[in-house]
Design a protein around this nucleic acid. Structure first.
Lengths: 151, 151
DNA sequence: TTTGTTGCAAAACGTTTGCAGCCTC
DNA sequence: GAGGCTGCAAACGTTTTGCAACAAA
C-alpha cells in the first residue's frame, strides 16, 4: 500500500502508543521495531532474536514482551499456522492479503482478492467492533498435489 | 446443515478413511470419535481426554494421535486461536461459520455470512487445491468495549 | 527517586517421542 | 504371527515467569 513508508512514521505510531499506555520508550523496543521494519515476510520470535544480535543485543524475553506490545498497538499480526511456533507479520508496508497453507508440507503463499476483501470489510456486527482479520485457505500446493498422484 | 446426522454415518466416514489408509480400527479411535460426536463446540485435546475418562480410558498420546487422523480425513478442523492450546471443532453436524475473537478477553463467537462464503468459495487457484478455510475476525466484544470506555 | 523494564535462568505449558507390551488384521 | 497401536513417562521446543540489577521518567 504505502510504498514510501519511513521508519520514522512507524516509530511515531509506536511512540504514541507507548506514551498513551504509559509504557517506557526503551532502546530495546525501538531496536526490535527497527529490525522488523527492515525485514520482509513472516518471522518467529527466535529468528528475530537471532538476526538482531549483531546490531543490538536483547534477550529473548524482551523480544516476546515487545512483540506483545506491537500486536496490541496493531503494528503486527500473529499467525499461528506453523506448527508450534507463532509467526508474526508487520501490518505496515504490506498490502492486505490472505494465506494459502499446504496441509502436507506447510508451505505458505499469499494472495489477494478484492471480492473477498470487500465482502469481509463490509460486514458489520452489533456488539463486536472488528479491527482486523485473517483468512487461511488450506489445501495442497502444486508440489504436494503432484506427489500424491504418483502413488 | 444435516440435522439428523447419526453417529453411524460419521463412524462410516472414519472407518472408510482408516481402511483406505490401512490404519487399524481400534476401539480407542471410535471411542474418541463418539466423545466428539456427543459434544458441542470447540475443545482442546486435554479437555477431551479428561471428559472421556469415565466412559473409555485412553491415554493423552492416543487422543493426539486420533485427532490427527480425524483432521486428516476432514472430520475435524483445528483452530489455533486460544493461546498455546489448539482448539478443535467437528466439521459434521455444523453449518459453515466464521469466528469473532475478542483480543482482550479471548471470547469466541460464531457468525455466518453468505456473501463472504460465496466470495471465498468461488475463488480458485492455479497450483493450489483448496480443501477448507478459516476466517477469524479480531476485535473487541461488547463487554470489553464497554469496559474500555469507562476508563 | 520511583517503578517499569531488562537479562538471565528456571519453570511451565502443550505436544511429541521412545519403548515394551498388546491387539488388530 | 506380524506389525501397527497403546499407555506411560520422559523429552522436546516455545513461551512465560521470578528476581535482582538497571534506567526511563
Amino acid at each position: 500500500m504505502k510504498e514510501d513508508l519511513t521508519f520514522e512514521a512507524v516509530k511515531e505510531v509506536f511512540t504514541n502508543y507507548l506514551q498513551q499506555k504509559k509504557h517506557r520508550k526503551t532502546p530495546e523496543r525501538f531496536a526490535i521495531l527497527k529490525q522488523i521494519f527492515d525485514n520482509e515476510g513472516h518471522f518467529d520470535a527466535e529468528s528475530l532474536y537471532n538476526h538482531m544480535q549483531n546490531e543490538y543485543r536483547v534477550s529473548l524475553a524482551t523480544v516476546y514482551n515487545t512483540l506483545d506490545l506491537l500486536l496490541d498497538c496493531g503494528l503486527l499480526v500473529k499467525h499461528p499456522f506453523a506448527g508450534q511456533t507463532s509467526q508474526f507479520e508487520k501490518t505496515f508496508g504490506n498490502s492486505i492479503h490472505h494465506h494459502l497453507i499446504c496441509t502436507k508440507c506447510g508451505s505458505i503463499k499469499e494472495f489477494s482478492d478484492k471480492k473477498i476483501r470487500t465482502a469481509i470489510q463490509s460486514k458489520t456486527f452489533s456488539g463486536f467492533e472488528s479491527s482486523h482479520y485473517s483468512l487461511y485457505l488450506y489445501g495442497l500446493c502444486k508440489k504436494c498435489k503432484s506427489q500424491q498422484k504418483k502413488k
